[in-house]
Design a protein around this nucleic acid. Structure first.
Lengths: 100, 100
DNA sequence: GTACTATGTAACAATATGGTTACATACACA
DNA sequence: TGTGTATGTAACCATATTGTTACATAGTAC
C-alpha cells in the first residue's frame, strides 16, 4: 500500500495518467512538467520503488510503463469499503448483478 | 483529490478503517494507536481538512464520522483507469453485466 | 464556583519531501 | 575514438510532516 503515498503527489498522479494512456521515456515525460528534468527523474524513482511503474531500457532511453499490481491493491482497499459510499440504489444494482 | 494525500499516511488509513466500521470519539481513537493523543488529534485534523471525516460535538466529545464524498472522488479517479488493470475476463464480465 | 474530563493548539525537534544545479554514466554514431 | 544525447545521482536548500510535552478551552457535575 506504499503506492498510495506515491500517488499522493499530484505530479506523480499526472505522470501515472500519462503512462496509462501510453508508455513514454523519461525525457518526454520530463518536458511535460514545469519542473526540472532531475525532479521528474526522482518522481519516476519514487513511482518505481513503489512498484507503480517499471522501466525498460532501449538504447539510452528508459521507457516507463504502468505496473498494474499496486493500482489493483489500492482498488482492492477501496473495494472493501465501497459499499459504504455507494448509495443504496447502486448497492441494490450491484447485488442484482451478482445474482445474475 | 487532497484526500489521497490524507490517506497516504498508514495511521490515517487505519483511522479511516475504524471509522468506516463505526463512528468514534477522539479519545477512543487515540488509545487505539501507539502514539500520543495530540498526534492522533492532528491526524484527525488532517482528515477533517481533507474532508474525509467530519466531527459532531456531543457534550465535551467530538464524534468522528466518515464523509463519503472524498472517498468517492478517489474511487472515481481509479474508475477512469480501472479497465487498465482489470484482466480481460473481468472486463468481459463487466461488459455483459452492463448489457443485462 | 471548583474539580474533573475530553479535546484541540502551541512550540519545538527530527526527519522526509521536493525542488535546484552540477556531475557521472552509458549508449549512439560519425 | 571522440562527441552528442539521455538519464540517473549527489549535494544542497527550503518547507512540510510527524512526533513530543506543555498549555488552553469548554463542557459536566458536584
Amino acid at each position: 500500500m506504499n503506492a498510495m503515498a506515491a500517488l499522493a503527489d499530484p505530479t506523480r498522479r499526472e505522470i501515472v495518467e500519462v503512462l496509462l494512456a501510453a508508455p513514454a521515456d523519461a525525457g518526454t515525460l520530463a518536458h511535460m512538467f514545469p519542473i526540472s528534468r532531475p525532479a521528474v527523474s526522482r518522481h519516476l524513482r519514487v513511482l518505481r520503488e513503489a512498484g507503480v511503474v517499471r522501466s525498460e531500457i532501449v538504447a539510452q532511453r528508459r521507457i516507463y510503463h504502468i505496473e498494474s499490481a499496486p493500482l489493483k491493491e489500492i482498488d482492492a482497499w477501496m473495494e472493501r469499503y465501497r459499499e459504504f459510499w455507494t448509495d443504496r440504489l447502486d448497492r441494490l444494482d450491484a447485488h442484482l448483478q451478482k445474482e445474475t
